[in-house]
Design a protein around this nucleic acid. Structure first.
Length: 184
DNA sequence: GCCAGGATGTTA
DNA sequence: AACATCCTGGCG
């Protein structure tokens, strides 16, 4: 998948990524859950209160990685969207493991496969994503790709873990996946 | 199965 | 102070 996939509406990008395969340096998983954030008018988006993140978006290209540390503990992986109608992010929230299972199990300390990548912090740990990947144009990076695909049943609902703009239905998922971070 | 609490770094 | 989370331990 090419970076111009991310020159559209952030909410459309988040919806259309569900069912695609996220390939990352020897490991991969089917994307079963995402969330959309908009840089303008969305109080839950980091750009709303943080000038440094606004600067980051201004400098980088669509399809680049926005990686940040959350709760001082977990790295979360987002993809930068720069659409005609507005910029934003897609947060990857859950994967269904496809390849590189042994490596992911090791990184996750031997936890059960159900919990390997079922959450935004869990999937980055499984894939070995961290601080060094912030700003990476990963779609043009060796060993990284997004392979188009479709979910069996697309559903949406409110985003998880936020205190502002909590009613927008910008969380998307594959309804019957056993690897969601939470049920819809 | 559910809930409470703690770990922890960065920002404004 | 707040935070786009995860894990553990205590219940029963």
């Amino acid at each position: 998948m090419h970076s111009d996939f991310f020159t559209r509406d952030p909410v459309d990008c988040a919806r259309d990524l569900v069912g695609c395969e996220f390939v990352w340096k020897g490991c991969s998983g089917k994307i079963v859950e995402t969330e959309a954030y908009r840089t303008v008018g969305d109080e839950a988006c980091h750009t709303f209160f943080r000038p440094a993140v606004r600067d980051f978006v201004a400098r980088c290209a669509p399809g680049d990685a926005y990686v940040y540390l959350n709760y001082g503990v977990h790295w979360l992986f987002n993809i930068v969207v720069k659409g005609k109608g507005g910029d934003g992010f897609v947060l990857l929230r859950a994967l269904e493991p496809v390849a590189g299972l042994e490596e992911m199990r090791q990184r996750r300390g031997g936890i059960s496969d159900k919990l390997l990548t079922a959450g935004p912090g869990r999937l980055t740990q499984a894939l070995g994503i961290g601080r060094g990947d912030h700003g990476l144009s990963f779609l043009e990076t060796e060993g990284c790709a997004i392979v188009p695909g479709k979910p069996s049943e697309l559903v949406s609902g409110p985003r998880i873990g936020i205190s502002k703009a909590k009613d927008l239905p910008w969380r998307f998922g594959d309804r019957d996946s056993g690897y969601l971070s939470r049920k819809f």
